[in-house]
Each structure stands twice: as C-alpha cells, then as structure tokens.
Design a protein around this nucleic acid. Structure first.
Lengths: 156, 156
DNA sequence: TAAGATTGAGACCTCAATCTTC
DNA sequence: GAAGATTGAGGTCTCAATCTTA
C-alpha cells in the first residue's frame, strides 16, 4: 500500500482507456456475429479453425489449449459440446494414451468453411478496413509487445 | 455464401492474429490480478472506479451501463453483488422514479483507493511500459478507430 | 405505451478435486 | 509421482420475460 505509485501520464491514460474500451467491446461484437450467423461462440470458432489448419485436421487437447490460450478445463467443456453437436470427435492418442486427440469431423470442416467468410468480413469491418497500412503495422507491433510481456510474466 | 470473400493479406492476418491473442489474454491477466489482490473482478473495478470519478460518487444505472459498455441486465447483477458486499447502495432517483441511482459507499471508495495502485501497476507492466512514446500514440489512434467503427455500426 | 431496471432460466467459465496413463 | 484430461460445484453472463414508473 505504498504511496509511490507511478500513475499514468495523460497520453498513457488516454491510450489505455481506448484499449480498455476495445478489449471489452471487440470480443462482444465478434462473438455476437458468430453466434448469430453460425450458432457457435467466437471461442468455438477459434478452436475448430485451429483444427482445420492442422495436419490431419487434428490436435492434442493440450496443444489446442495453447493455440487458443485457454485452460484445459475450459477447452474440455467446449470440445465436449462440439462433440455432442457432431463437429469434433475425441480419441486417445495411439502413440501415447495420456493424450487425447481432438479431430475435426466433415461436419466440423463444413462449419469452418461456412463461418469463415462472415468472420473475416467482421474483422475487416471493425478492425482492418478502418486502418492505414502504417496503422496495421503499428497494431501488429504493439499487440505483439503486449502479448510477449504477458507471456514473459508467466502469469498466463 | 458467395465466393467473393476478401481474405486477409499476410500483414493484415498477422496483425489480426496478434490482436486476437491480445484480446483473449490481456483481460484474463488483468482480471486475475484484480481478483487476487482486491477480490473483485476487473468489471467490478471499472464500475466502482467510474462511480468514484463521478460528481457525488453516483450515477444512474443506465449511465453506468454506458460507461462500462455493459448491458443493463449484467450491470444490475453486478451492482446487486456490490451492494450485498457494502460497496454500493441503490436508491430511486428523486428527480424521476424510473431511474435508479448507484451510489458509492465509503467502503466502496476505500476499495477503489486500495485497488487502483495494483491495477495501474498491472497496466504498466503488461501494456504501457513495454511501448515507446510513438507506439503509445499509435495505440491510442488504432484503438480509437476500432471502437469508433463498432460504435458507428450500431452493433453495440 | 415506452424507458429504465430487475429477475429467472440456461449456458458457460473458473477453480479445485479427481481420474487415467505413463 | 507427474502430466494430460475430465468432472462437479459455485459463480457469472446472456437472453427473454417481467415489473415499475412516467
């Protein structure tokens, strides 16, 4: 409870408030689009999309958890629901029974193919198409710096 | 289901992936810090913080919902819990009985005062202190553009 | 009737505890 | 024992329905 807090300077505070607004609203609108148009959450989409781009359209649960920056517990619940809906199936890894492999079904592939255009359009609409080339470069740089600092902190 | 989708170019895709990673992980680490150190969620903090900066340390529920970019339904649940814990109280607006005014209590004020330094330190650690002055300027610009496009879309 | 606010049901997430395989 | 994965309980969010006041 020390008094020597380094408060944010004006430019810093304005930038942070803008980012705080972004991180509360951007996920909400992208999630709403996905839910409305494809009846899956944005997180579901990230998961099946990651599977669709993997060799054999499959990943170990623990790998998929890293790709989606989620806990194994959350992912397990999500994949269970996706499996109940026929988009994914799970099998023990033949190479090592401790692992579970999540495999995208044909229906899951069709889901990704159907959902991708709307998702990309939303990303363009809310983010990309409003930015100059320089701003896109700056965005990549800033976002990477932030995620690297989160990574480095170990507070994953 | 038209085929004329404008997919993302390489630079655009990389920038978007970095931002997607940020919006999934930054809220998580900031929320974890607040929960660990002050036993409230990040959203709770945004709410009591907004009250603390308002004239009379009070706001109508509908105004507080706009400040926090939340639904009135969510806010109602959050404020109910904050009220049960003694940080906020609610009264009908004397000027117009349709409104409910959320008022920060002394305990709520103390909560904000105690929680603020840790929150600012986390924002510095994960975001601000890793960026140059130019990057902070670019961040403000990019984030503002995105939130303005969300606002303009009406898909709040 | 409409705006502001609340409530209830169902889905989801988090955390801790548990199970399984190596 | 340790890593990967799942489960159960408790808390939270969303959506729709409801209540209240103007």
């Amino acid at each position: 409870m020390s008094e020597d807090v380094r408060w944010l300077a004006d430019e810093e505070r304005v930038a942070w408030l803008a980012l705080a607004d972004l991180i509360t609203r951007l996920p909400a609108v992208l999630d709403a689009q996905m839910l409305r148009d494809s009846n899956i959450t944005l997180f579901d989409y990230f998961a099946v999309s990651a599977l669709s781009m993997s060799p054999g359209r499959m990943l170990r649960m623990s790998e998929l958890a890293r790709f989606t920056s989620s806990s194994l517990s959350r992912l397990s619940n999500v994949v269970k629901r996706l499996e109940q809906r026929g988009f994914v199936r799970r099998e023990p890894d033949p190479a090592n029974g401790r692992y579970t492999v999540a495999i995208l079904t044909d229906a899951g592939w069709d889901l990704v193919v159907a959902a991708a255009p709307g998702h990309v359009a939303a990303v363009r609409k809310y983010v990309i198409d409003g930015l100059s080339g320089d701003q896109i470069t700056a965005l990549r740089s800033v976002a990477s710096h932030v995620t690297e600092r989160i990574q480095a902190s170990g507070d994953c």
